[in-house]
Structures are given as C-alpha cells and as structure tokens.
Design a protein around this nucleic acid. Structure first.
Lengths: 217, 217
DNA sequence: GATGGATTGGGGGATCTACCCCATCCTGCG
DNA sequence: CGCAGGATGGGGTAGATCCCCCAATCCATC
C-alpha cells in the first residue's frame, strides 16, 4: 500500500466523534488512490491550532463548538498558519448567524452532524481538490434567514452583560459610562432586534448564538 | 465466529457518533467471548424507544440530548418495555440536576463524551454483567453540587413562562390567576434560587437545564 | 385536629425598565 | 466641508419589577 497522499487533523471535543471520523476518513476507497491519514486529533480549539501549525495537513475536520476556541477562531488561525489546508467544519445545530460567518470567512466545507455523513464523504474528494461544498441544509438556512441586524461593538458588550444578569447600574459601572447611556444602548438594541423585554433579549441572543451559553451567572 | 451474545442499540442524533460507537462496540475483543452486535441505530428519542421495544437488546447506549425525547424519557420508557436492557447514557456537558435525575432513575452507566472512552469501554463488560458504573467526573460533580432548590409545580410553570419572555400580566392571563400571585411565585422563585432579576433567573434556568433552550421566543 | 406547605391574592413602596424628548462629541466618508 | 452614524448623557414618565406587609384556602402529614 502506498503512502497516503492526504494528511488530516481531526478536532472535536468528543473522543467518540474523533475516533468515528478517523475510522471513516481512513477507510479505504474514500479518496483515491491513496486515502487519507489522520495525523493528529485535537480535543479543543487551541490544540487544534497547535496541530495545524505543526502538521500543516491537507485537511482539517473540525467541530464548531469546542472548548478554548470555537470553530471560527480555529478557521482563522488555520488560514494564517497553513493557508493550503482545506478546512471543513462540522456543525451541530447552530444559528444562521454563525453559519453565515463561517461561510463568509471561506470555509471549504460545511456540514451538519445530524444529517447523514454521505454528503460529507461524498464531497470530500472534491474539497481536497479545491472545490467548496456547503451542505444543502445550511444553504437553505441562509436563504431563509431573515434579518442580520448587525450590532455595534458597544451594543454587543451591553448585550453580553444584560444576558449575564447585570442590571443597568452594574453595566454602567463595568463599562465606566452613565446609566443613561446603557439605557440608550439597550433601547437601540431592542429596537434593532425587535424585542421588548430582557427575557426576549436573552432568548434572542441565545438563539442566534450572539453570546455563549456558558457565560456564568 | 460464534453468534454475538450481546445485542445493542445505539441512539445519538449525530450520525458520526453512532458509527463511531458501532465500530467501537463491534471491535473484537471488547467483550469476551462473543462481542457485541449493534442491531439498531436511532437518531432521536422516539425511534430509540421504538428500537428498544422491537429488539429488547442487552444494551442501550444513548445520548442525553436528542430530538423528540431526551435521555431521561428514553431511559424510563426503556425500563418499561425492556427491563432487562442495560441502559448506558453518554452525556456532553450537562447540569448536576440532569445527572442527578439520571442516577436516581437508575441508569446502569453514565459517561462523559468529552473524556476518554477508555472508562466506558473498560466498564462495559461489567455493566453487561449487571454492575453499574457512573463516571468519575459525574460522581465528583454530584458531590460538589451544592443546591437542589426544588421548585413547586406552579413555580416551575411560572419560571418557564418568565424565561420565554412573558410579562407578569401575560403569565397571569395564561395561568388564569392574579398578577399578584404571579409576582408572589416569582419572588419565592428568586429567593429559592438566590437571584435578583429576570436575567439572572433565565441564566440560572438555562444553566441548570430547568428549561429547554429550544423553547421559542 | 394541628401544623406546615403550596397556592391564592390585596396594599404599598423603592427601584428599575422601556422609551420618549433633547443635546454634544467624534470619526469616517463622499 | 458637511453630514450621517456611533457613543455619550440629561430630563421625564408610564409601567413593570422586586420585595416587603398581610391573610385566606386547600391538602397532606404527623
């Protein structure tokens, strides 16, 4: 058997997923003529980046949601340190916003974890030859996605603090601005997002993935 | 090769995870002498239950978070229709509350997806012989878990409505009670949970998995 | 049958939210 | 240069929230 022509790095926080992907990638006949060899696995974003810098593989298969660094950050870093690496992102359920970011940052492949993997593995040879492939599910999601109500930097900060349970007074102290200004940002925020209460604001933020659900309190 | 002695059903909403688990379970040498055969896969809770009723396998490997029915519901239904099936739950990151529920409902095995699978596969033979095994991570989580602030039925209803963005007035109309009573429940709720605003209430509810993040608006 | 909890609800008040009004300052852009 | 847009705030207000006070009912458990 000849040496595998393509090297791959697999990044996912679940060990089972990593071994499943490794097995699938290395199964003979997937990519002709020599197949793919998984040279490294990573359980979090930072070690994924480290693995990219070390191996500069042909392919990076990575999950969107990972500890320490998300899919988007890893994508950007991968582009920086190993521009020729094809980056394929696997996503669980994510918001149109996140998906859109990934696409506009130029992922080479974008697939859902939930659907069959046939689409992924069917498209892989093409991707390794430089084609791009965004899963049908996500393409529809992006078309149907209605609003992209882009928020300013300050608004995003305020939103994050609101969502973590801070009152206007606390936010004002944290950001070193007046309560009135926080109030202003909040009003603009709710107008942009077309909601009318903190609860809806939080629900929206979580749904759209504007903020991490892991941000404490 | 002799017929496998143990039949298994694998339930997870991600196809990659299912195939990874199938490969690992069916790899020779895992369980002596005859190994495990995966007789069915399920991508959601309801088909998991259906598979259990049809196959009555020795082992059910299932994810906590699945569409249509969660891990707990599937566990309960599995016990009902196939009491001799060993149920092993795999969990991503979940709250102490959910973990505690699973344990007190008597799962035969409880493992984290993030950690190495060695613990799972090492414990599997024992589990198939009737032993129970809760992963070290979760055992520590349960020990360190401080509060179990159990809420009344009404409080839970109110919490759910608050979290989905309803105002006190709306909640009062929905439940057919006075605004004052809603207010009362809310106050008690916040006292029990030691929080002081809607935002913190929502953050708490999401963090502890008291409510589904998928509840609209 | 008494005690405790859950649920119900009214009065009242301090505070906060949501949203108007207004203005200033700065920065980037045609 | 003007001018839009972002960020900054002050005044004001109707309404909502948060949290006290109080008491009634029902229901289980001791």
């Amino acid at each position: 058997m000849s040496e595998p022509r393509f090297q791959a790095v697999v990044a996912d926080d679940h060990a089972i997923v990593r071994s499943g992907l490794r097995a699938a990638l290395e199964s003979p006949g997937l990519v002709e003529p020599a197949g793919v060899k998984v040279v490294a696995e990573a359980a979090d974003g930072l070690s994924a980046i480290a693995a990219i810098r070390q191996h500069r593989p042909s392919l990076l298969l990575l999950d969107v949601q990972m500890p320490l660094a998300g899919g988007l950050e890893v994508l950007i870093e991968a582009r920086r340190w190993s521009p020729e690496t094809r980056v394929v992102v696997l996503s669980g359920v994510t918001s149109p916003g996140k998906i859109g970011e990934l696409v506009s940052c130029g992922v080479d492949g974008l697939f859902s974890k939930g659907e069959d993997n046939d689409e992924l593995f069917g498209a892989l040879p093409g991707i390794l030859r430089g084609r791009r492939h965004v899963s049908e599910v996500f393409r529809r999601m992006l078309e149907e996605a209605p609003e992209v109500p882009d928020l300013s930097e300050r608004e995003r900060q305020v939103l994050n603090l609101v969502v973590t349970g801070r009152s206007n007074k606390e936010i004002a102290q944290i950001l070193g601005i007046s309560v009135k200004t926080v109030d202003r940002h909040r009003t603009n925020l709710m107008q942009k997002l077309d909601v009318h209460s903190v609860a809806q604001l939080i629900a929206y933020a979580l749904r759209e993935g504007l903020i991490a659900p892991t941000s404490g309190l």
